[in-house]
Design a protein around this nucleic acid. Structure first.
Lengths: 248, 248
DNA sequence: CGTACTATTGAGCGACCTCAATTGGCGTGG
DNA sequence: CCACGCCAATTGAGGTCGCTCAATAGTACG
């Protein structure tokens, strides 16, 4: 906790240096993130309201359910999870977020966050003050468009997850999930077959609506069947094609 | 600006008559729908791009998966459902929509609809050309805000549904669903305890991730337990309090 | 090298599904 | 008006997928 304060105080110097290196227009994630499609001038305007490079440690929260909306967060590196809770502690993970993805838009309606956002590993994020962003989007049509697109995408992803949890068997869910990770890694320029699982088996279960033991058993079974090999957090998909075929 | 009202050559008179009765500013759903928070001038501008009063019959689709995004739809009366499909015909209903709610925003990302939207009963909708709406939102900050709010709300609702399907037992799901219907009816100025189910048991099952028989059995059980009474599509909730208590 | 956590594997059980028969509601046509 | 057919809803019987509980094995880290 005290560390967070210190880094805030040192902020001025550190951040200004960082921002030179990390301006949107020089960011490797530019075309996955909010600035997609903006021209140089507009990107600069966006740059001015973004606070770059806050570091969050594993287990640390960007926000919790019920907190007022202050910032959106763009992930630069690392991985996060968002979750919703039931009164008695039951948890549903609603998404895993990777670099280039935006967190916090769930809170625009109601001004309070409806989920928790927690770092799965040490991560870097850009903080984007919501009020200023909304104001800026009013003047930059590309930014408004991108914001709407982004939220629409979130709706689509949640719809997909609903379909998985509501209508797929356990093994289909896990395979679909792995394919999803594969595609997202590819988007980031990484291997589509060698997947790093940033989360625990428990987290995967809480995401897919399964018990952690079921996830573990399925990994073992898929390995027996030659679909993949697992070693802890690392999964190698032997044949993307074979996996696609299993999902009819 | 006020002359642009008659941009359609055909039936200027017809439209103007209809628009008197149905103009956003006179619509009873004004404060639930897109115009919420707009001043008179802005609402008029919105009015000009909205095509009012298309009627859809039961079973008719507003759009289907894969179709390009043309319009958003605001429901004036009736009820709709949105659904996603798996290759082999398995279906997941992702939402039921009532008057004042907006359909189609799932397609903003990717320009193609990701779900089917089908009328559960004869309904009336306003058609809102997406291109024009986005353009208009660029000039009317209240409209941009409302649009963002609306999509954020959709994200929140889907998150709730995920939590229900992923982590609740069958009886909890149905009760939570009924409470949700109760609240939405109340918002429309109707009774919170006497609920009309606009959809079949099959639809409810496909929404909650349950078999239709399970839904039916649960209704019978709840009736035995005195939580509610059922007669076909009509449900009377005996005690909202008792139902809340059952959900811890 | 020990401690603590995460993952794997096994055994048994129960919630919910599937299949099937029955009932009820409603419109159509005799 | 009733008979009939059609579809939605209810109810029953039996099966199974995935959960729970529990023991073991592997891994990270001081």
């Amino acid at each position: 906790m005290s560390d967070a304060l210190i880094s805030d105080k040192r902020g001025a110097a550190v951040i200004s240096i960082a921002s030179i290196k990390a301006a949107c227009k020089d960011c490797s994630l530019r075309d996955l993130c909010l600035p997609l499609g903006l021209d140089d001038a507009d990107m600069l305007a966006l740059d001015r309201i973004v606070k770059r490079r806050r570091t969050v440690r594993k287990g640390e929260h960007l926000f919790r359910m019920g907190e007022p909306l202050q910032m959106l967060y763009a992930i630069r590196s690392g991985a996060m999870k968002t979750s919703e809770l039931l009164g008695d502690g039951r948890i549903q993970i609603t998404g895993f977020q990777l670099p280039g993805e935006i967190l916090g838009v769930d809170a625009i309606d109601g001004d309070r966050h409806r989920c928790n956002a927690e770092a799965l590993e040490i991560s870097e994020v850009c903080e984007i003050p919501w009020g200023k962003l909304e104001e800026l989007a009013q003047h930059i049509s590309g930014l408004q468009h991108q914001l709407l697109r982004l939220m629409s995408g979130e709706i689509g992803r949640e719809g997909q997850l609903l379909l998985m949890i509501g209508k797929m068997s356990a093994d289909e869910r896990l395979l679909a999930c792995l394919l999803n990770f594969s595609q997202r890694q590819m988007r980031l320029g990484m291997s589509p077959t060698d997947i790093k699982l940033h989360m625990s088996r428990q987290d995967m279960g809480d995401y897919l609506g399964l018990a952690l033991e079921t996830v573990s058993r399925l990994f073992s079974r898929f390995q027996e069947e030659g679909l993949l090999t697992v070693r802890g957090k690392y999964v190698h998909l032997t044949s993307l094609d074979a996996i696609h075929r299993r999902l009819t």
